[in-house]
Design a protein around this nucleic acid. Structure first.
Lengths: 257, 257
DNA sequence: TAATCAATCCGTAATTTTTACGGAATAAAA
DNA sequence: TTTTATTCCGTAAAAATTACGGATTGATTA
């Protein structure tokens, strides 16, 4: 299998750090659901978050950005480090071993190939505007697609836990980072942003108080357009007043709910 | 120099992870000051936070705990991961190179010795009860002692930044973790805990409102003792009601000020 | 074309939380 | 006994948060 060979050649190079890598949980929001971009490596019937090795010439941030770019095609990304994961067993999985890989690929895989080593993973999350993402799977993957954060498939290693931790971080950060701005399209409705916040926080927020606060903060601009949504009253569209938003977040105006 | 040889032997062993290590910022509080435990490696006239390599058999948490234990003698430690640091140049320093080390030690140090490699550092902070710490310097260090967090000496690598980031994390965590409990001795006075919070937050807190809130939360127990403090009115001693404290923090009672 | 349905959208009052602030009490030292 | 530095307490005003119901809209259905 050619892909694996190329991958192997890359992996064997001296250009990468050993025992440490990055994982980047890529979030998107569409269809009233918070979603995570996952891929399925061909070796197993399980899914993984987006990760990669770190080049000796780049920072961990650059590595996180690079791997997210490779999946989404987006250069400008909002991403934050949240925490690192490291245990001797975190990246072991029944099925992820030399024997199984050899059988699957027909290539002789040494038992002590360094990809089986103990890897510390530095975790990031990335916020993307769903519609702008051009999903692109990697060479050694069979599939790559969005999954609802509340309905994840079987996942490899400790990746389910990493997603859970990323979500926790998102909840903590929601008051201090422009999370709504990053996840929503340029124009959106009040019910949309309302639902987004409810989804992230995992609890209901009173709609009147919610919009009241956003509008009081002056970070929303009401547009003279409506969105047609099937059989019901058409909601108005809004956009962010980016300057006021940034300014507000910097000067400590929290959007905690 | 025997110590270096032993160290070198250890370093060369296959038991450690490459390109990744832990750093643990050890905080203590005494004399109305928040302090950090630093050590001075013999190679340079600069100070470092407490760090170490990770064994292949341990988690990153265990590594962080181990290195903190080696300096403080304390087994039970409250510590939290806060963030990781990784750039190709973060652990370079004029003076930290093979030539200089060779001169200093008389031992031939290869230019490409792996300790000069790019290391990602996973940052933790530890909270200690000052009086319980038995400061113990490492074999290859000339000194180890407490420094006021607001008056740090010249520090190696990016360690000053790491301390600053640890302090930032402490500020964020102060509402959700038992920081006062961990840093103060069993019995303490209201002015002491008040000053601790002011120090960590870096801003004045109204004393009446401060004690009001702690007492309202029911996490303080007033004792029938006073502490003699020189020439003035003797303050009452308090201790934490640990159960209520834990319970309160878990159930979301924040101690934000 | 009228009635129905599902969703949007708005404002005020009650409650809770946070902030502001001054002066009496204490204990050792002078 | 006076001075000095520190502890310690309570109330009132302001701000923020929470609670809550009903009118509007626009497509769909009867």
């Amino acid at each position: 299998m050619k892909n694996l060979k190329r991958q192997e050649a890359m992996l064997n190079s001296d250009e990468l750090l050993r025992n440490v890598a990055v994982d980047n949980v890529i979030f998107g929001y569409s269809d009233r659901e918070l979603k995570v971009l996952l891929q399925q490596p061909f070796v197993l019937d399980k899914w993984t978050i987006t990760g990669g090795y770190i080049k000796k010439t780049e920072t961990i941030q650059e590595a996180a950005k690079r791997v997210a770019f490779e999946r989404t095609g987006l250069k400008k990304l909002f991403f934050e480090q949240f925490r690192s994961f490291g245990t001797p067993v975190r990246n072991t999985d029944p099925g992820f071993n030399a024997k199984h890989l050899s059988e699957l690929t027909g290539i002789k895989v040494p038992t002590d190939l360094w990809i089986f080593d103990y890897f510390v993973s530095v975790g990031f999350y990335t916020l993307t505007e769903f519609s702008k993402v051009k999903v692109k799977k990697g060479e050694i993957e069979t599939d790559c697609r969005w999954w609802p954060v509340n309905d994840l498939p079987k996942m490899m290693f400790d990746h389910k836990m990493i997603v859970a931790e990323a979500l926790k971080a998102l909840r903590l950060h929601i008051a201090h980072y422009p999370i709504g701005y990053e996840l929503l399209p340029e124009k959106f409705t009040l019910p949309e942003i309302h639902n987004l916040y409810e989804t992230i926080l995992g609890r209901p927020l009173d709609d009147r108080n919610f919009s009241k606060r956003l509008i009081a903060a002056g970070i929303l601009v009401k547009l003279n357009e409506k969105r047609q949504i099937g059989a019901h009253r058409a909601p108005f569209l809004y956009k962010f007043d980016k300057e006021k938003y940034d300014e507000g977040l910097k000067s400590g105006v929290t959007l905690a709910f």
